[in-house]
């Protein structure tokens, strides 16, 4: 490329814009960390102090004293782990049926599954509550976990199916000729090959279950069963001025999410992208 125009200036402008936007988008994180390390005096100082003279780590200790953070963490972990197992397992099985097996009515039914994605949760929320009440499941984790084992959600089925479709069918047909059962093919061939899709679905499910608010809000009433999201919302309602502690609690709740993000960045971003592009 012959440089006819002063490319230096154009690049500088490009970088300038990139940096300016990055600052705007990342400033809230810095502010959050800063607040979590400040005492009330520094928090309400005008003009604001970005780096306080003494870092108040006590805010983090107070999170554990002022709410049963570890209990909430345990509860959230239990729900999240089971939801992930159920969602990944059942959406993979169902997607396998849609992508790798031939049966009458398959493609019509798949369109129908996709269409159910459009259904607002509100339409089924109330009867589900009544149903779970009759099952005696209220104030247990079953309403949050059991449905995950039965299909795992239309979007995850969709995502998984799209991945299975990219696998070569000869592979499956060869195994069939060798007399392998469909379960063996699914378990031994399809699943190991689908690892990227499994990880993506697991991550998206983690994000959903870890942060879910409406579900726990409706189904759980005993405070000892609260999740982190529910506990944090409750704490916010009661102590709206303890910003240092609130930010510390928020950061603690975000740590696993941020860690997973940096560890599985590629899958994370792919999951968000696939959620709209193919179809």
């Amino acid at each position: 490329m012959a440089a006819r125009r002063p490319i230096g200036l154009k690049q500088a402008l490009g970088y300038g814009a990139l940096i300016a936007v990055a600052l705007v988008l990342l400033l809230p994180f810095a502010w959050m960390v800063s607040t979590s390390l400040k005492g009330n005096e520094a928090i309400f100082a005008i003009p604001p102090v970005w780096i306080p003279e003494t870092l108040r780590w006590d805010n983090y200790a107070e999170v554990f004293e002022r709410m049963p953070f570890l209990l909430y963490l345990r509860n959230t972990t239990v729900i999240t782990v089971f939801t992930i197992i159920g969602t990944v397992g059942s959406s993979a099985a169902v997607a396998y049926a849609f992508a790798c097996l031939r049966w009458p009515g398959r493609d019509m039914l798949f369109l129908f599954v996709v269409a159910t994605m459009m259904l607002p949760l509100q339409v089924i929320m109330i009867p589900l509550f009544v149903l779970f009440k009759e099952f005696g499941w209220l104030n247990t984790y079953k309403p949050l976990i059991v449905p995950a084992f039965l299909g795992g959600g239309a979007f995850n089925i969709f995502l998984m199916r799209q991945f299975f479709l990219t696998l070569p069918t000869e592979l499956f047909d060869a195994a069939r000729i060798d007399g392998a059962s469909e379960w063996t093919i699914f378990w031994r061939i399809a699943l190991p090959l689908a690892r990227p899709a499994l990880v993506t679905v697991a991550l998206l499910t983690f994000m959903f279950a870890w942060n879910d608010f409406l579900g726990p809000l409706i189904y759980l009433s005993d405070q000892a069963k609260n999740t982190l999201a529910l506990g944090l919302a409750l704490f916010t309602g009661q102590h709206q001025t303890d910003w240092g502690v609130l930010m510390a609690a928020s950061i603690l709740m975000m740590v696993p999410v941020i860690a997973l993000f940096f560890f599985f960045q590629r899958y994370f971003i792919k999951g968000f992208t696939m959620s709209g592009l193919k179809g």
């Binding site: 990055a22 988008l25 928020s250 971003i269």
Partner: peptide, 20 residues
């Protein structure tokens, strides 16, 4: 960096912005 805010959702997002 631009993607990073997207991983903050729900209650945490609400609490942070309540403060912001």
């Amino acid at each position: 960096a631009y993607f990073l805010p997207s991983i903050i959702t729900g209650v945490v997002l609400s609490v942070i912005w309540l403060w912001l």
